[in-house]
């Protein structure tokens, strides 16, 4: 196997290296890639979409159709993880572990109890991992709102600075994952319910495709935000800028929910009760 792998790697690598002879040099401003399509984006974006961040304009408008399917890819991965892993039946095997809040004594119940003990007296903790770090828990509790605020800023400011739906969505998702890491998975799941997460991830993509379909219903082509100008009551160029903002919000929502969905299912092998 190793010899075969070495042969394949050498063959493919050799082919790829030999082709670089015809490639333009690193950073060459006269390379075909920099001269054919991209100058139009750089020079016309402001005029056609009024978005200063060219990457955002190309991403969500000129090639917005790719980006819609890119969001769909994220959504697909979330649904796929759910389909492959989620299990409704409780985890087999050992018992549940509780901590008595007042004394810190840990109690293990070999049979899952019929009624949960009062949560203000006994707190359920994970079997093999007992985070009880006052500093970590409280620092994260303080940080998470600011992380989320920053995520919203990144989504909303994608027109003017590096950022946008994907980046902001990942930051928002990371804030929920941080909660699951510093507290536990159950806390994060009660704060953001499973059904809500699933619905948000579908809704996010639906916002994107829905804006496109609305343009189609208004008589334009699919995703032609300029056709939305009568509803938005602005001129077509500003309508493009606003359309980009709407789809970025959809992307952010979908990415955040899907990151949380994937993390939960992977971390708990689909049981959503405990896990890293």
């Amino acid at each position: 196997m190793k010899a075969l792998a070495l042969a394949i790697v050498a063959l493919v690598g050799g082919l790829l290296i030999s082709a670089t002879v015809d490639f333009p040099d690193w950073g060459d401003p006269a390379s075909p890639a920099s001269l054919h399509v991209s100058p139009h984006y750089v020079e016309k974006t402001m005029e056609e979409t009024s978005v200063p961040n060219i990457v955002t304009a190309v991403l969500a408008d000129y090639r917005g159709f790719d980006t819609m399917f890119e969001t769909t890819v994220v959504f697909t991965a979330g649904v796929a993880c759910f389909l492959l892993l989620r299990r409704r039946e409780p985890r087999p095997g050992p018992s549940r572990v509780y901590r008595h809040r007042a004394t810190g004594v840990i109690v293990e119940m070999s049979q899952p109890p019929d009624t949960e003990p009062a949560p203000e007296v006994f707190k359920r903790i994970d079997d093999d991992w007992t985070p009880h770090d006052l500093i970590v828990m409280n620092v994260c509790r303080l940080l998470i709102p600011f992380i989320q605020l920053f995520g919203l800023y990144v989504i909303a400011h994608g027109h003017h600075s590096p950022g946008g739906g994907f980046q902001g969505g990942v930051i928002l998702g990371a804030s929920v994952i941080l909660l699951a890491l510093s507290w536990d998975l159950r806390t994060a799941t009660t704060r953001m319910k499973e059904t809500a997460t699933g619905l948000m991830s579908a809704t996010g993509v639906f916002i994107y495709a829905g804006v496109g379909a609305l343009a189609l219903a208004m008589g334009g082509n699919f995703l032609d935000y300029a056709a939305l100008s009568p509803i938005l009551m602005v001129d077509p160029v500003a309508a493009r800028s606003l359309g980009i903002f709407f789809v970025e919000v959809g992307v952010g929502l979908a990415v955040m929910a899907t990151m949380v969905l994937i993390y939960r299912n992977l971390a708990s092998e689909g049981h959503l009760d405990q896990g890293l």
Binding site: P29, A33, S34, V37, S38, P39, Y41, V42, E43, M46, I54, V55, V58, L59, R63, D66
Partner: peptide, 13 residues
């Protein structure tokens, strides 16, 4: 705006 002043945005997208 001159295209030569800004790097190519398409590969990033």
């Amino acid at each position: 705006v001159h295209a030569a002043d800004y790097i190519n945005p398409l590969p990033h997208v």
